[in-house]
Every structure is written in structure tokens, then in C-alpha cells.
């Protein structure tokens, strides 16, 4: 079982990202859960969402305490929130950032494996909005392969209808531009 924690700000679509990954995994015949950090979420405030994906039925309703994968949608969050909190030893943090690996390690003290992409820039150029939830799914796909690209695109078609194409384009560009550390 793989466990994912997404960090975003209220309104950035972190819950939607979690939903897309889970529905795609379920469409592939796997078992999955997606859920928000339950509470009165506010637009702009730091929020989290969670995903579990497994080949076996998932028999837990615990929160995710030790994620395998952390995805950070907003570049300002690692300075405010310990995004690597509870991360498994071989876990990975996937960041929306325009910083270099050494800058990230120095500024935020993240020691784990990293995947990095300037998702805000891509989202602004492709979608015309600084909403990075679908863009960051490109980085998640490249860094982890937690779900297949076809299934994810199908989930996006269903969820977004006419605007799915643009989101798929942003996802594809992020997939190409994501850099993964050793």
C-alpha cells in the first residue's frame, strides 16, 4: 500500500487531485481511498488531503501518519509547514518550486529524496491560472507511477469535461520538466 499526503492551500484543488488519483486507481481495478483533512477548510489557509492506493482491500480508517509520498502544491508552504513530517525513510517529497535542490535542502532541511518542478510557471503559461493541482499530478506520475497516465487522463476527462485538455497539457509538461534527485 502507498500512502500520499498532499499539502496545498484552501482553494488550490488539493482535494480534487486526491480524488483524481483515487478514482483513476479504482478504475484500474485497484483499491484506493481519498479524503480531505476533515474540518472547516478556509480558502488560502494551509490544508492537506490524503490518498491510499493498494492492490488489496484497504482496511484502515486511520489518518495518514507515515506517508510514502508527499506532494506540495504551493511553493510557500515548506517554509510554514513541516511537509516531510512522518515521511517514511525511503519516501519522496514532490515540490512545486523554482529553487535548486541545494537551496531546498538548506532552506527547509528536507533530507529525503526530492522531485521538483516549477508548477506555478507551467500552470500560468498553460492554464493561465496559478492553480497547480493537475500540473503537480504530472510530477507525481513521473516520480512514483502510483497510477497509470491513461487512467488519470480518463479521470480528468470525466471530472473536467471541456477544460480537461488544458489540464492534461499542463500535466504532460510537468511530467517532462520534473527533476528527481538520486
Amino acid at each position: 500500500m502507498k500512502e500520499v499526503r498532499l499539502h496545498g492551500r484552501g482553494g488550490q484543488g488539493g482535494v480534487t487531485s486526491a480524488e483524481l488519483v483515487a478514482t483513476a486507481a479504482i478504475a484500474e481495478g485497484k483499491y484506493a481511498q481519498a479524503f480531505p483533512s476533515f474540518g472547516p477548510e478556509r480558502r488560502g489557509a494551509p490544508v492537506a488531503a490524503f490518498i491510499r492506493v493498494s492492490d488489496q482491500p484497504i482496511r484502515t480508517r486511520e489518518k495518514v501518519y507515515h506517508p510514502d509520498i508527499v506532494v506540495v502544491l504551493d511553493p510557500s508552504l515548506p517554509a510554514l509547514v513541516n511537509v516531510a513530517d512522518g515521511l517514511k525513510e525511503d519516501g519522496i517529497v514532490i515540490l512545486n518550486t523554482d529553487l535548486s535542490e541545494s537551496e531546498i535542502r538548506e532552506k527547509f532541511g528536507i533530507k529525503s529524496k526530492l522531485a521538483m518542478v516549477d508548477a506555478t510557471k507551467i500552470a500560468l503559461e498553460v492554464l493561465g491560472l496559478p492553480i497547480t493541482n493537475t500540473t503537480m499530478l504530472g510530477a507525481l506520475l513521473k516520480a512514483t507511477g502510483i497510477v497509470g497516465k491513461d487512467a488519470l487522463e480518463e479521470a480528468m476527462d470525466k471530472r473536467f469535461g471541456r477544460i480537461a485538455e488544458k489540464n492534461k497539457a499542463a500535466l504532460a509538461r510537468a511530467f517532462d520538466e520534473t527533476v528527481i534527485t538520486g
Binding site: 486526491a18 480524488e19 483515487a22 478514482t23 479504482i26 484506493a32 481511498q33 479524503f35 476533515f38 480508517r61
Partner: peptide, 12 residues
């Protein structure tokens, strides 16, 4: 049904 723990979870 348990609020949030079930009501707000996406699952198969």
C-alpha cells in the same frame, strides 16, 4: 454512517 470518516471518503 460515520461523519467524515465515511461520508467524505472516496473509495471503490
Amino acid at each position: 454512517i460515520d461523519g467524515f470518516t465515511l461520508s467524505h471518503v472516496i473509495e471503490p
